[in-house]
Structure formats: structure tokens, C-alpha cells
Amino acid sequence: MRHGPILPVPRTLGMHLRDILRGISAVAEVTEDALKPAAALLPERVQSSFRSALSAIEDAGSRATTPEIDLSDIGVAAAFLRDGPTDDDDVRRFVRVLAHAWQKLKTGRAAARPVFSETLAAMEIDALRMADAPSASARAAAIAMDLRRSHVAGRFPGTPFAPSAAERTAIDLTLFAALVWLLADRESAMGDEERVLELAYALTHALEGEVLASFSGADALDAQLQHLARQV
């Protein structure tokens, strides 16, 4: 018998709710891994129901936690990097686009990629003096340095987190790729923008050693972001 979705998800959610769902989704992932050995002892029918329930939670979480964005949101986020904040809503829209990029890059990749908290990221960026940055890439570098210092990416949003080396690498590369994407030339169709995001990640990954080394300081990061944004 075919059932409809177990967890219907509204098309749009507030950033706090998305953070909560990201947490639930992460719990489902961890639970599935942790209970794998014990689940093998259960009868096949029970195992199957257990897997379906967890996978429904993961799917619903993934759909709900990827904020929908359009070309105008991307334009606002890119302008935010270029000109600094011009409107009260700019930070929220910038973080929404960043969260979208984070989820897109997370999907389909096996490597550990921690959960991104929009609420905390917005608070962190709000607290930065964004208007003082001399260029878009300098502003992007300041944001990257600040976000990686704080707990905006973790196992459960907002909780203290000591990332493993693999998780630290994943956070740095994802953040870097998303910012390269926003610094690069814009496309005129959403599908093309998604493609450029993928390419920004692939290029970041291709130059992983240099990218990770550039997190040693804001100036080095600024130069590296600028360099890759030009190449994408």
C-alpha cells in the first residue's frame, strides 16, 4: 500500500523553525547510524518500518530546511556583499541564501557536513560592522572568519561543538564555496545559478589546500575569495 508523505511540510518556514527541523533531521541521521547494529536483530518487517520512519523524517527535514530562494534573493545577497546593508531585511535575506547554498551542497555528499543555523548566522552578521569593509571580497572574508569562529555550524544548531578535522574542513570549504558563488558574475536563470554554485564548490575542492591555508587571516582569505570568484 502506498502512503502519502508522513510529514507534510509547508512551502515556507521561519528561520527558527527551519533550525529546529534541521536539528530533528540531524537526530534522525545520527539515530539511524547508532542503531544500525541493534536494528539488524529485529525482524525484517520491523526493520523496514523503522528505516522508513527515519528516512521520512530525514526527507521532510531536508525539504523543509532548504529555504526557497529566487534570483532576486541572490541579487540582494550579492549586493549585500558589494555595498553592505542598505535595508533592515538584508541580513535575513543574505543568510537565507547562504542557508540555501549550504543545504544544496550538503545534499548528495557523503562527507560530514554539519548543520547550519540561520538564526545564529543572522545574529552574528548583524553584530559585525559590515558597512566598513572596503570591498565585497573583504566583507565576505570578514563574514567567513566570523561564522567559522562561532557555532553557526554544528551537529545540532546552536549547541557547543568541537568539530573533527573532517567536519572543520567541510565547514570551511562549504562556507568558502557559497561566498565565492555570491561574489561571482550573476546568471539570468535559477538553474544556471544552481550550476554556478556547484562549480564554485568543485573549484574550491580542486584548490582545497590553498583555500584552507587562506583561512589563516582575513587578508589572505579576501585575496583567495576574489581569485576564485574571478575564475568561476
Binding site: 556547484e198 562549480l199 568543485a202 573549484l203 575542492h205 580542486a206 584548490l207 575564475q231
Partner: peptide
């Protein structure tokens, strides 16, 4: 392989 092609471009 998009990643290998991007690696080639970077090199």
C-alpha cells in the same frame, strides 16, 4: 566527472 574536469581546469 565534473570534479575531475574542474580539477583539470584549475591545473
Amino acid at each position: 566527472d565534473l570534479q575531475l574536469l574542474t580539477d583539470a581546469f584549475a591545473e
